[in-house]
Amino acid sequence: MIAASDLHAKPSWRSTRSKLMTGLMIAAVAILAIPLIAVLYAVVSRGAGVAFDAFPAFFTKDIPAISRREGPGMGPAILGTLLVTGAATVIAVPLGVLGAVYLHEYGGTRKFARAVRFMAMVMTGVPSIVMGLFIYVMWTMRFGYSAFGGALALACLMLPVVIGSTEQMLRLVPTQLREAAYALGASKSRTILTVVLPAALPGIVSGALLAVARAAGETAPLLFAVGAAKAFNPHLFTEANTALSLQIFNSDLAFPAAESRAWGAALTLVALTFLMTITARVFTSRFALKR
């Protein structure tokens, strides 16, 4: 019997080259991981101090009105982020799911459905700042700054993402399930609402969660809609609000106190988005339909 090693008694150039390229691929993985580790290290090492000093002051106290003043406070920004992102989710997820239902259950390969599918993919690439200015023109110029304007901008960004991920999930629902429901006399809408959507629900939820995580970190679309308040504002439709990302962008890095608050806000924001992403992934691998 000839062992594989006998065939390559001396490592040939071909196998060396293959090994070299494999090595380069591993190097690429390292290059991908280095910035992530570096940014996480920076955020945790510089942010944890301010965020957890006199816990939970950082998460509940007001933002100091004067940048150079020491002390905690990102409470209003946390509330603002939750308010804006929550409202965006309430707007975008139902619409996105319904749109995907059309694409997969009704439209199929019809021209209109193909056009929507294509443009939804194009829409995911529209820069977030363009959506922000769009909402400024359509909403802020008429109704002024509010959390809701920011929510509209984020909803525009989330909509095509939710449509895309939901349609993928609907594709995984077996046709037999639908046929069984029809055979029992269910109408099409009833089949979709009581059979197809529940079957695809875990996947839809985790896809939506990923879109929400992405949106929660956005800054550019909020610049033109939310304003730059520093006080608590629990109202969705009135008065300027704020968000964690806006506070980081607007913080005056010349002052150490403001810089450390920015790192604290960054830590909070990263923790929030990571939590949602990991939840979405775990959810998918536990409950979602598989290919």
Binding site: L32, P35, L36, A38, V39, A42, V43, L210, A213, R214, A216, G217, E218, T219, A220, S245, I248, F249, A262, W263, A266, L269, V270, T273, F274, M276, T277, I278, R281
Partner: peptide
């Protein structure tokens, strides 16, 4: 996934 979800403003700050 985690690389993709780090907010742009955090990359900017870093």
């Amino acid at each position: 996934d985690l690389c993709a979800v780090v907010p742009s403003v955090v990359w900017g700050l870093w």
